[in-house]
Design a protein around this nucleic acid. Sequence first.
DNA 1: ATAGGGTTAG
Length: 491
Amino acid sequence: MFSLLSKLTPPLSKTALHLPKSFSTTTPQPQNTTSAAAILTGLILTSTNPKSLTQSLLSPSINWTPLLVDTILKQLWNHGPKALQFFHLLLHNHPTYIHSVSSFDHAIDIAARLRHYATVFTLLHRMRSLRLHPTPKTFAIIAERYVAAGKPDKALKIFLSMHEHGCFQDLHSFNTILDVLCKAKRVEKACNFFKVLRGKFKADVISYNIIANGWCLIKRTNMALETLKEMVEKGLTPNLTTYNIMLKGYFRAGQIEEGWKFFLEMKKRKCEIDVVTYTTVVHGLGVAGEIKRARKVFDEMVREGVLPSVATYNALIQVLCKKDCVENAILVFEEMLRKGYVPNSTTYNVVIRGLCHKEQMDRAIEFMDKMRDDECGPNVQTYNIVIRYFCDAGEIEKGLELFQKMSCGDCLPNLDTYNILIGAMFVRKKPDDLVVAGKLLIEMVDRGFMPRRLTFNRVLDGLLLTGNQGFAKGILRLQSRCGRLPRQFKL
DNA sequence: ATAGGGTTAG
């Protein structure tokens, strides 16, 4: 297996500087766009009358720009129907403003996620009639949504028909579709497709890396090695990314000692191992419970002159939370602050989860408040973590309180949030809780999230058992409209 | 948005 490593000639170029990611410049958004977007998002969410909303949106005082539209669409991501309504109102009613390609991409993404495929194709055609060309990215979005909906063949079909929509197929787009399939764990399908077309598109190292990573994602490291062997036989040279993929694959598959040996071999062969390599090993060892070894590797990387990134710290903090103790994790968190790193939402979420797990909810909330000061406010994941732990601890009211807080803030609940809360409505066996569950069910459907049939049935049973026949009937009609009706029912 | 490292429970 290490014969692959000998192909690493000449040595990979050294990355000039290993600056922590937080030191890189981020593009600031104009303040006026951010605040205008927040106001408009609020307006769209609270409006009940499309006509008056249209009038408000057409007000000449609003200076529509692609950035403003994109920002609003992102904020409405977890309220798909409202997002599409907004996009269409501008599209059909504004006298001068024309949507940009990126706004069309957002709208297509949302429509495809809602499985409104007719809308997807209408928008594609509308783009062409406006002489805006769909890009390879547009097709990557559609393909990804098809795969997520369990329709990988449709994804391949749309890729193969790209040229009919005025978009050229090349190696880039070929690699993209392979990656979409692999990331969705449809590796077998990706591999077959790859074998048929790799000659035509002149597959490169990136193509092989994508397939090898796919096998690693489903823990079939031997198939990944096979793929890389084929690559070498075709005269292509593995690069550092190739080795990092294999390394991660071993740890993910629980082959800790294989991973460790591979890491030692990478060092011996003088690969210019980088921050990604070290982060992979720190995380891999830590997840396996090897905290001391993980720490050693972390110290070693600093000695070797490879600066840890925020992701490296996140990896270390997470494994300390899981396999050591939260206190030590928080010490590392404080150390990273002292060194000038800016924690991101992942850092906070990891610490908050660790605190929740140790039933230190008050401290978890403190960290949540600290996030706001670091201008990465709590995100949906943060809320979902804390809401889940409150509910698990039987503090349903506190969970609901946080849910209310997010509903009126800039962070809309997602499918997980609704599933967590609806599930929690059954623990106290209170009739009122089931009414809340029913209301949550109605709200989530309204926002474009599809509850599972089981969820419908549980809520229905609960309402019937607590004597709420009237409401149950309404839920049953909703279930019917969603196509989630049990067979034996006829309405 | 052509590839690799940190968040998720069961």
